[in-house]
Computed example of a mutant assay.
Amino acid sequence: MTTRTLYLLCSAAPPVFDVAHVIEDAQRRGWDVCLGLTPTAAEWLEESLDGLAALTGHPVRSRYKRPGQPDVWPPADAVLVAPATMNTLNSWALGVTGNWLVGFVAEAIGKGVPLTAMPCVNSAYAQHPQFLPSLEILRGAGVRVLVGPGGFEPNAPGEKRPYPWEAALDAVE
């Protein structure tokens, strides 16, 4: 059996605190998981980073490597960007690569890596005039964006509801 590699790339939104369970679910589905985080998500999970690296068997990445350094992860068969904040989605759509995660997925479009993104924004953010155009830009570039029925549906500000991680993992299958 050939091992499939999933890059799970997470922004700083509350569902990131469930990432260990998501990794375990992906591993049960046959994925070798590599975890990448935005700098803020890495800060939020700082006390768990060593455990997450042990769980995946790979270093957790949140920063660019230095030129000439070898890549520490196997090549991706699929990439899941979730939870994807408005900042991550807009930066990605606009090509603003101020952090490693956004830089990686921006380049992955040009490399033809299969990309899936699932937002995590509340309904107030979803009304911002840049949000929908960013989703359309990403879709136009070949990114599968999971928003609406069967994916993430924006909730009211402050409303807590389960994040549809299973739908995201189903989509990368």
Rank of each mutant, 00 (worst) to 15 (best):
T3A: 10
R4T: 05
L6W: 01
C10N: 10
C10R: 03
A13S: 15
P15M: 04
V16A: 11
D18T: 10
D18K: 09
V19N: 14
V22D: 11
I23L: 04
E24S: 14
D25S: 15
Q27F: 04
W31E: 15
W31N: 13
E43A: 14
E43S: 15
W44D: 14
E46H: 15
S48E: 15
L49C: 07
L49A: 09
T56P: 08
T56V: 03
R63I: 02
R63N: 08
R63E: 14
Y64T: 06
K65L: 15
G68D: 04
P70D: 13
V72K: 07
V72G: 12
W73E: 08
W73S: 13
P75E: 12
D77Y: 07
A78Y: 03
A82F: 01
P83N: 04
A93R: 06
G95Q: 03
G95D: 06
T97F: 00
G98K: 07
G98W: 03
G98Q: 11
N99K: 01
G103Y: 00
V105I: 15
G110L: 14
K111C: 13
G112R: 14
Y125F: 05
Y125H: 08
H128C: 02
H128D: 08
Q130M: 05
F131P: 01
F131N: 02
L132G: 07
L132F: 05
L132Q: 10
P133T: 04
S134W: 01
E136P: 02
G142W: 02
R144A: 06
V145Y: 07
L146N: 04
P149W: 00
G150M: 03
F152D: 04
P154F: 07
P154C: 08
N155E: 15
A156C: 03
G158T: 03
G158R: 04
G158W: 00
E159V: 07
K160S: 11
Y163T: 07
W165G: 02
W165N: 11
L169V: 09
